[in-house]
Design a binder for these strands. Structure first.
Lengths: 337, 337
DNA sequence: CTGAAAGCGCTAACAT
DNA sequence: ATGTTAGCGCTTTCAG
């Protein structure tokens, strides 16, 4: 069923059928009606991909995530999907599976298929990203790359809130459990932590890096125990949840022995034990915002301001944080109160 | 950069360039080399979407999920993604957002863009699915539809194992907390539960339906408390995790007062409290298998056996199941042992 | 308001 | 082994 079949059926030219669909108003109401009716009857469906050859547009955007399996992306994907659908775009999903090569390949293959690209959690270098952005509209999520449009969370403010919260609870030293070194967010969070602790006259300690997974968190506990911290902020919730498990297994009580704070407020951070105090990012909104920025580039052409869009963060206090324990926990035999 | 630019650069015909890429061996090694070099230099990239007009193929498959936010789909999406990439296909993702209309729309829009369609957790009627399957290759995940290719988990065996496990623990009555009525899996699981309990001379009780979400599970607790069950099997893990939370809030101890079993083994079922005993589905494999079946249809043409591919399930025993409590729990004031 | 014709990037006959 | 030609489904001039 092509546009020609519909045209023949209605006794009009193919171009008229085309106009009836893509240029409403440039065709008389009567014929437009007739055409739509015939199209419906014949079961004709527009083939947006044909446009690629003639207009250069495909009506699709690419979404490359570093790992579809990571719960952080759930709301982000949905937000992007919804915003794309609203603009009548379809979403081409690519899972990099935490592999730089797969990511590059996926981007390469997307390049000619999409009108724009969303990069979420990319592991590529800034230079590589800029190279891609030269070829088509790109928006990077949760990372700032000079010269490339991006949408980032207000990491610094989130960390600041977390540190203040711990300060209120009487903590004086905060241990940061670091995520991957290639992660832009990890750098920003650690820096913000140092600044905030400095201002509040606290101490900051860093351990890691660790893989940003539950298992990574479990394995981090060993390093942590030597430090015997009273307050920990983890790079993200996955790591924090792993910490919770590892600490429980080691007989360290959270939050009475040590307070733990995560980042992202992912699915599961509310029903782990204890419920995780964490910095929430409006990931859904972030995804939508990213698509909006992409749309601005695609429709509006080049230029505009290239400064990152910043979405706010907030601290969600649950049960993994508590006042600092009075004395040193070495006397493991001390009876519980 | 088109095929023509490369052709001009090399002093050959466009068709030769085309052949150099898509029909290796039908062009002399020397020219092939020359062409590839020039293409590289000019930054030419193949545009697979153009093929749609001439070959009818797009090199993309569609993946429609009822809710991208549901953790069950993550391994499935990844499995499908990986299998598709292996075959050099790209994945067009559509999120139905639990809305039948959005699902229909998404499918409609995919129809002309993809070579085949994977339906995961579809809410459509069997008839509608068959209608779609008439228009292009379709594989349904986790649901059997006569006349349509499908990949399903061995729900019955999973339930059977769960029931046996509870029987071993001395339980005599099992309460099933049902999921959505439109869900094929819900029907199958409940039926299997009835059969298994019948064989083992136990009793089966059903409550619900409830939305298959954590909140749904929390709200199900009210209905459950009237029944005062000793063993519960929930439609899925989301529901089961909600149950765990609701029961804890109501002061009912799991597993000593009541055993709870879920289904799916989703992310989070291991770190909720207590760890959830659940029936695991190899979702990743299921997604890969579904793509394989799709490939068989696309390449191999029509026909073949249309019987569902069945992937195995297994029971993962964690901490939410225990021997049946000795006496009736009404005396809420009885001291803990 | 509508038709005719050209052309998008590419491949598939059909020649040579 | 390679060039020529036609044509895929669609939009876009350009006429009328």
């Amino acid at each position: 069923m092509t546009i020609n079949d519909v045209a023949r059926e209605c006794g009009v030219a193919a171009s008229t059928v085309s106009r009836a669909f893509s240029r409403p108003g440039r065709v008389s109401a009567a014929t437009a009606e007739r055409i739509k009716e015939a199209a419906e009857r014949l079961g004709y469906r527009a083939t947006p991909l044909s446009l690629r050859t003639v207009t250069g547009q495909t009506g699709m955007i690419g979404l490359v995530v570093s790992d579809v399996t990571n719960p952080v992306y759930f709301p982000l994907i949905r937000g992007a999907e919804a915003a794309a659908t609203e603009r009548d775009w379809m979403t081409l999903l690519t899972d990099a599976q935490e592999s730089a090569r797969k990511e590059r390949d996926g981007i390469d293959r997307s390049l000619t298929a999409v009108d724009g690209l969303l990069l979420a959690g990319t592991r590529m270098s800034d230079a590589s990203i800029r190279l891609v952005a030269q070829q088509l509209p790109v928006v990077v999520c949760n990372r700032a790359v000079t010269g490339v449009h991006s949408v980032v969370a207000d990491n610094a403010r989130g960390i600041r809130r977390a540190v203040e919260h711990l300060a209120d609870l009487g903590h004086t030293t905060i241990t940061y459990v670091a995520g991957p070194e290639a992660s832009w967010a990890d750098g920003v969070r650690w820096r913000a932590l140092r600044e905030a602790t400095y201002e509040l006259e606290m101490r900051a300690v860093r351990v890691g890096p660790f893989p940003p997974t539950v298992d990574g968190g479990v394995s981090a506990v060993q390093a942590l125990r030597r430090l015997d911290p009273t307050a920990v902020i983890a790079y993200n919730d996955l790591l924090a949840i792993g910490l919770l498990r590892g600490l429980a297994a080691a007989g360290v009580a959270v939050p009475s022995d040590v307070s733990v704070i995560g980042f992202d407020n992912i699915f599961g951070s509310d029903f782990c034990t204890p419920g995780l105090t964490t910095v929430a990012i409006p990931l859904r909104g972030l995804g939508g915002e990213a698509v909006a920025r992409l749309a601005a580039q695609i429709d509006g052409g080049a230029g505009h301001q290239i400064r990152p869009t910043v979405v706010p963060t907030r601290l969600v206090v649950r049960d993994s944080t508590a006042p600092r324990r009075a004395q040193h926990r070495r006397a493991r035999s001390s009876p519980p109160t």
